[in-house]
Simulated scan of single mutants.
Amino acid sequence: MGHHQGAPMPATLRHAFRARAHPARSVPCPHEPCHARAHQACIVRVNGRVMKDLHPARINLWERTVACCPECQVQPDIPCHNDGAPLAGTVHDRRIQEAKEILA
């Protein structure tokens, strides 16, 4: 007998199940060579192992996407900088705090 898929899960229930996951899973992973799609776990490409945590670059991307930075006064989606010099692959601590407050 074949497997029959039931009705799709309502969005409210799907959100509750995903609520345990880090919100950064909502963005794709920019880490080379992971590139996990949105809502999928990060993986180690060399052995295919699913990671318990997310790559730091993915968390930084999420923080940059959802929060303004009080430190360097940039809007969401704009990378943090120090006096015009971009921060390489990271964001200011104050932006991390801002992103956490958005979740609350």
Rank of each mutant, 00 (worst) to 15 (best):
L54K: 00
I102M: 08
I43L: 14
A85H: 15
Q73P: 00
P10Y: 05
P8M: 12
D77G: 03
M51N: 07
R20G: 11
A104P: 03
Q5Y: 08
P70I: 03
V66T: 01
P56R: 12
G89F: 10
V50P: 05
H15Y: 11
T90C: 14
C34G: 04
H4Q: 12
D53E: 14
A19H: 04
H31Y: 13
C29E: 05
E32G: 07
A99V: 03
A7F: 13
C80P: 00
E101F: 02
L61P: 01
A67K: 00
M9D: 03
P33W: 08
I78K: 13
P10S: 07
P10A: 04
I96K: 08
R37G: 14
H22N: 06
A7M: 14
H31G: 04
C69V: 00
C42S: 11
E32A: 13
R49K: 13
E63D: 06
N60W: 00
C42W: 06
D53L: 11
M51L: 15
P56S: 10
E98P: 00
G48M: 07
T65N: 07
D93P: 05
A88S: 12
I102C: 06
K100T: 04
P70S: 08
P10K: 07
C68T: 00
A85C: 14
Q75D: 09
L13T: 08
P28H: 09
K52Y: 09
K52M: 09
P70K: 01
R58Y: 03
V66P: 00
W62E: 01
H4N: 08
P33K: 07
R45E: 12
T12H: 15
A16P: 02
I78N: 11
H39N: 15
D93L: 12
E63F: 01
L87E: 04
A57L: 15
P8C: 09
V50N: 11
M51D: 07
E101H: 00
E63Y: 02
Q97E: 14
N60K: 03
Q5S: 06
A7N: 13
I59V: 15
P86A: 10
R64V: 05
G84M: 05
C80L: 03
H31R: 11
T12F: 13
T65G: 03
R58E: 02
H55A: 01
H31N: 12
P28K: 08
A57S: 15
A67M: 03
R64L: 08
C34Q: 03
I96F: 05
V91N: 03
D53I: 09
K100C: 04
M1T: 12
L87Y: 07
A16S: 07
F17P: 01
Q97P: 02
P10L: 05
E71T: 03
P86S: 10
R58P: 01
